[in-house]
């Protein structure tokens, strides 16, 4: 017989946590910062309550996932629920600057040459 300690985990399976959903909307990426808008309420799903606890300060999605030991997909689904309920807000990281704001490639080439010539 196996001596593996298989029963140290939790008895609830991931599909019961997500209610059978396996697709998350794309509102969150790994580094989206999440901050809770209210304290957990009695009668909430325990995962939601924990997320609200963890996100009193802005916390990255990936960090919450690691803390709660849940896959990223599940986290996104749960956060999607909370976002839909208005209990959290998501702060996306600053988007990459637009193309026009970047220096000209010719200028960069010149800098490169100058550096090489040093």
């Amino acid at each position: 017989m196996t001596r593996r300690p298989v029963d140290i985990g939790d008895p609830d399976r991931l599909y019961t946590i997500t209610g059978g959903r396996s697709r998350a909307d794309d509102a969150f990426d790994l580094v989206t910062l999440i901050v809770s808008e209210s304290a957990p309420r009695a009668g909430m799903q325990s995962e939601h309550a924990r997320i609200l606890d963890l996100c009193r300060h802005p916390t990255a999605l990936v960090e919450i996932a690691a803390e709660m030991k849940l896959p990223i997909t599940v986290m996104r689904i749960l956060l999607g629920d909370l976002l839909a309920m208005g209990r959290i807000s998501a702060r996306h990281p600053p988007p990459p600057r637009p193309q026009a704001a970047l220096p000209d490639s010719a200028l960069l080439l010149e800098v490169l040459h100058g550096l090489r010539n040093l």
Partner: peptide
Amino acid sequence: WNKPIVMESILRG
């Protein structure tokens, strides 16, 4: 199980 299981987990399990 070698630890107490909260009721929510019991029901979901």
